[in-house]
Each structure stands twice: as structure tokens, then as C-alpha cells.
Design a binder for these strands. Structure first.
Lengths: 229, 229
DNA sequence: CTTAAGCGGAGAGATTTTCTCCGCCTGTCA
DNA sequence: TGACAGGCGGAGAAAATCTCTCCGCTTAAG
């Protein structure tokens, strides 16, 4: 593959990552093209359709995610610090967030499951180690960790995104969130007094840690719930 | 106003709130119509254009937000519990998140500023009280509180939204985030070791508490930054 | 029972999005 | 250095989506 072709490919993938993150997986490919600063032809030659682009992106991200986890574990002897380093790295790379946005649009074939399993295993290892060392609350599951990452590291809506310039704010808020996961942190009774409005019945079991399987199950079906997306 | 007209109006506002929250302030009004289960005619008769709808929505939300803050302060003697109650109420009503999404699309006239000031004052009061009582870290600003609320209570992207069914998960994660704001919570050195990739220069001053004014300033300008949204 | 306000939906027109084709440019290898 | 295969950007046709109006039927209110 020619050098400039490879460069284009990477620019497209990076642009796609950000665009999908900001505008959802249905964002016009045109927007990707514009952000990448290439012509439409270039995108469609490399990725025949939306599915191909998304698949390439997800595979790439899952791989890097697993690598980041391994690197974090090697770089920090302290289990909590390793976990923290990983979480920050994932946020930097816009990964955690991007993946869940995208997974739902794909038929998850074997290759994808393999990549996902690898990444999850690496992160789970970090989580478990921190919990066993008594440095993290034990009522937190992989699902909680992943979702918290997604929530905190997603770009803010609309004009607020500028606050995140450079990523400094994301890191600040990630640390705030992580602080809530330390064993010392106060735990509130869920109380269930939620107020009159929103349904008080627990759809997902609110009590225990959220497992990763629950997250996968939810991501599995496209637009099933709700009154016609 | 006839009873059914009022009912339609409310259904439209509720639908609009969710749709704008999920798909941004440019979401097709068609989608609002579909979710509300009314005909297009009904929407356009009540709200001549997008601006009218957005304005009605924001005004309504700001008012309710201020009310919720007052109610929380009266219901709980303990300052931290009052703040917590308010935060959960705001999440239930999809408010904090909706407002910031929408404010940027509006010319903020006097009426809007008044409503906003009222709401902010009420919440600021809650925050200050909790901090003075020593129940909350003092390196947290209104901006942090608001943004954390936005981040945690926004609907999850895509299919993951089903995990939030009933709102149980949002409340769980809100409590996790709040736990990170307690005085006891561990504070990390920001370290700035972010990793090679993302720019390490601090766009927003990463150090101190984020003020509400900073948030407003950011929300003020539409799509100024970035390489052509 | 009367009546006017309200409602849902069909659909015209405008806008946006997808994707192809083609002529020029640029790495790469001899 | 020169030749050329592969790559590039962009114009633009075809399809999809979105906005908003008009109209005949329904329904709340007196």
C-alpha cells in the first residue's frame, strides 16, 4: 500500500471516530469526509460502505484498547494507579465511548468477538487486581466502570465541547468519578424516593454491580425498545 | 385552551425534551412529532418554528429546575442530602442535560436570563451550604457540578439507552459520582502524564474548580471552534 | 345538540446525503 | 530521471430526508 494511501486511511479513521462520537453512528459520511479533509472518492474507495468503515474502526479501537490496558499494567506497580492510568488513556483515545456507540451497528462476527474478549479480559484483570488489593469498592462491576468511562469521556453536547479543549476537563472529571469508586467513599442507601415523576420500578436491577454481560446484552439489539426511535 | 390541546402541548414538550437530548438541537422536528404520537400539523400549529419550541422548552425546564432546588432545600435539613436530592430530581426530569443542549440555539433574551439566574442562584445556594457544612469538597465549582450532572444523566448512546430503563442506573451512577465529591474522597495529583497522544497543553485551566460563568461563556457561541463542524 | 377548535395525515417543495465517474497528481521502481 | 500505476479531489445524478401547509373528520365545551 502506498504511503499516501495509508495516511489517508488513518486520517479517515480518526475523523470517523470523532464524528461518530459527536453525532452518533448515523452521522453522514460526508461529515467524516469533510473533517478528514479528503474527497468523497477517497473514502468510498477504501471503505465500500458505512459498515466497512465502522467495522475497521471498531476493530482498530478494540486492539488499541487492549494494548493500552497491558501497557498500563506494566507501567504501574500499584493496581489502582494502573487502572487509573488505563482509564485516562482510554479517554485520551476516545475509545471507550466510541466503541459502544459503534458496536450496535455491527453484526458481531467471530473476529469482533475475539477482539472484544481480548480487550475486556485485559481491563477486567486491572479491575479485579485493584479490588483485591482493597483499593477499589467491590460493589463495582465492569459494566459500571465502562459506562462511567463512556459517560464522562463522551464529548459534551454542542458548544460546551470547547470546554474540553485539550482534554484537561475530561481528565479532571474522570478523577472525580474515580474518587467515588475508592473504598473510602461514602455509600448512600439508594432510598428509591426518586420523586413522583419517573417510573420507580427498576428496569435494570439497580442494586448490584453492573456486569459487562449486561452491557453487551443491551448493545446487542439495535433499536428495539422505546416508542419507535 | 381546550383540555386536549393542553395535553398535546405537554406531550410535544416531553417528546422534544427527549429527542433533543438524544440527537442534539438540530434533530428533525419530524422525530419529535413521531415520538409525541401527534400529527405534524399539531406541532406546527402550536409552535410556529423550531425556535418557538426550543424557547418554550427551555423556559419551562429552567422554571422547574429552580422549583426542584427550592423543594430539595426545604425537604432535607442536611445540606448534602438536600444537594443530592436536587441532583437526582434534576436527572429524573432530564433537565440539566437538556438545558445546556438547548441554550446555545437561542438568542438569550432578558426573560431567559432571568429564569436562568433564578435557577442558578437556587442551586448555588445548595452547593455553598454543603461546602460550608464541610460535607463537600471545596475545590468543586458550580461548573463541575452542572457538567457532572450533564455527563452522568445524559441518555447513553444508541442501544445502551435501554440500560437506563426506569432511571435506576442513572441514579446509581449519580451516587457514584457524588461520592467522589465528598471531602473524604481521595484527590489525585493531576500528574499531566496523559500519554503521548492527545495534546498535553491545558486548554481550560485544568487546576481549579470550574465556575458556572465558564460554562455559560462556552455555551454562548454556536459552532465557533473545531475545523468546520 | 351545536359549533368551533383541534387533530392526524397526505404530500409538495426544499434540502441533505449517498455514491460514481473522471481528469489531474504523485509516490515508486527501474 | 522518467514512466506509469495507483491514488486523489471534486462535480454532480439519484435517492432519501426534512419542513411545513392544507383539508376533511373528530371531539370538547357550552
Amino acid at each position: 500500500m502506498r504511503a499516501d494511501a495509508e495516511r489517508s486511511r488513518r486520517r479517515i479513521l480518526e475523523a470517523a471516530c470523532e464524528v461518530f462520537l459527536e453525532r452518533g453512528p448515523d452521522a453522514p459520511l460526508d461529515a467524516v469526509v469533510r473533517r478528514a479533509g479528503v474527497g468523497p472518492g477517497t473514502l468510498y474507495r477504501r471503505f465500500p460502505d458505512r459498515e466497512a468503515l465502522v467495522r475497521a474502526l471498531v476493530t482498530d479501537l478494540l486492539t488499541r484498547l487492549a494494548e493500552a490496558a497491558d501497557r498500563a499494567r506494566e507501567a504501574e506497580a500499584d493496581p489502582y494507579r494502573a487502572l487509573r492510568r488505563f482509564v485516562h488513556a482510554a479517554a485520551d483515545l476516545r475509545m471507550g465511548a466510541a466503541i459502544v456507540v459503534l458496536l450496535e451497528r455491527l453484526v458481531v462476527d467471530e473476529e469482533l468477538v475475539a477482539a472484544r474478549t481480548g480487550a475486556v479480559a485485559a481491563v477486567e484483570e486491572l479491575l479485579r487486581a485493584a479490588q483485591e488489593a482493597g483499593q477499589l469498592r467491590t460493589d463495582i462491576g465492569m459494566g459500571d466502570l465502562v459506562l462511567l468511562c463512556v459517560r464522562v469521556s463522551r464529548p459534551l453536547p454542542g458548544g460546551l465541547a470547547v470546554l474540553d479543549a485539550g482534554g484537561a476537563l475530561v481528565h479532571r472529571h474522570l478523577d472525580l468519578a474515580l474518587a467515588g469508586l475508592r473504598p473510602g467513599a461514602a455509600v448512600e442507601e439508594s432510598a428509591e424516593e426518586s420523586g413522583g415523576k419517573a417510573g420507580a420500578e427498576a428496569g435494570a436491577e439497580a442494586g448490584g454491580p453492573l456486569t459487562f454481560d449486561q452491557v453487551i446484552a443491551a448493545a446487542g439489539r439495535p433499536g428495539e425498545p422505546g416508542p419507535a426511535e
